[in-house]
Amino acid sequence: MQTEKRKERIDRGIKIRSDGIYALSSWREITYLIAPRFLLIGGLLAAPLLLHFFPYWQKVLLIICIYALLSMAFDFLANYVGLVCLGGSFFVGVGGYGAALLNKYLLLSPLISIPLAALFGAAFCTLLLLPCLPLRGVYFAIITLMYPLMMTRIIEAFELFGGTNGMMDIQGFGNPWIEQYFLVVATLVFLFALRRLSVEDLGLVIRGIKDNDQSVRASGINITFIKAQAIFYASFLGCFAGAYLAHVYMWAGLSMFALDFSIIPIAATVVGGGGSLLGAVLGAILLVPLSEVLRAFGPLRIVVYSLILTVVIVIKGEGLLNYLSRKYHQFERWVEI
C-alpha cells in the first residue's frame, strides 16, 4: 500500500510572539527578525556605492526609488484606505511643476524646493480630490483617472508654464552623491514612516474606513477628514517623487502627467503584493529594470505592464512579497497521512 504524504506548514513560533512585543531572547531570533529589514535598508544604502562604476544603472536606481515612492502611495491608498488611484501621474505632475515654479521664481535650492513642493503639491492634490471623498465606489477612480489627462489638455491649451515645451533650466543637484542619497534615504524614511503610521491609532482608523466606513462614522469620527489626511500623505509621496524628477531632469513638462507614472506603480504593487508597502517597493525594484530593458520598444512597455497587471489580478496572485514572507515564517515538511 502506498502511503500518501502531504505537506505540513507550521508557523514559526517567533512570528506569533514577536507580534507587538520585542523578541530579544537570542541572537538567532534577533537575526531572524531584522535580517529582511537589514537586507532592504543595507541594500538600498549600499547600491549607489556599488553602482558607482555603472552610471547608467545609478540612474536606474533613482527611477526605482521614484517608482517605489509612487507604488507606496498607490498601495497605501488602495489597501489601507480602499481608494483606487488610477492617476499617480497627477501627483508627479503637480509635484514636478511645483518644484519647477519654486526653483525658477523663488530661486530655492533643490533640497528646499523638493520638500516644499511636496507639501504644497500634496495640499493642492488633496483639495482637488476633496469633492469625491464623501462618495464610495468608482468615483475616486474616475476622478483620479481624469485629472492627469485634463491637466495635460489644460496646460497645452492655455500655454501655462511653458505649454508643451515645459519649464526648462531648473537647477540640478550638482553633486551626484547628494542627488542619490537624498532620494534613497527619503524613500527608506517614507517607507518606514508609512508602515509605522499604519499600526498607529490614526492608521487603524484609516484601515477601519476600508473595512467598514459606517461603523467609523458611528464612532464619532469624521471620515472625510480622515480620508483627506490619508490622501495628503499619499500625494505627498507622489509630489515628492515628481519634484525630485524635475530637479534631476532639470525640466518639468507635460510628460510628467504621462501614463507610465500611473500604470507602473499599480503593476508594481500588484506584482510585489499589496497591503504591506514593502511589496510595492519590491515590485518597483523588479519592474523598473524590466522597463529599462524594454525602453527601446516605446509604447510596448505600457502594454507589457498592463498585461502583467491583468494576468496577476485575474489569477488572483497574492503578490511576491506575501508569498515570500509566508515561506519565511513557516516550516514546511512532508508528513505521512
Partner: peptide, 17 residues
C-alpha cells in the same frame, strides 16, 4: 477597475506601438 483600465490601456498602446 484596475483590470478593465489595464486592458484598455494595453489595447490603446498596442495600436500606438
Amino acid at each position: 477597475i484596475i483590470a478593465t483600465y489595464a486592458i484598455g490601456v494595453a489595447l490603446i498602446e498596442t495600436f500606438r506601438w
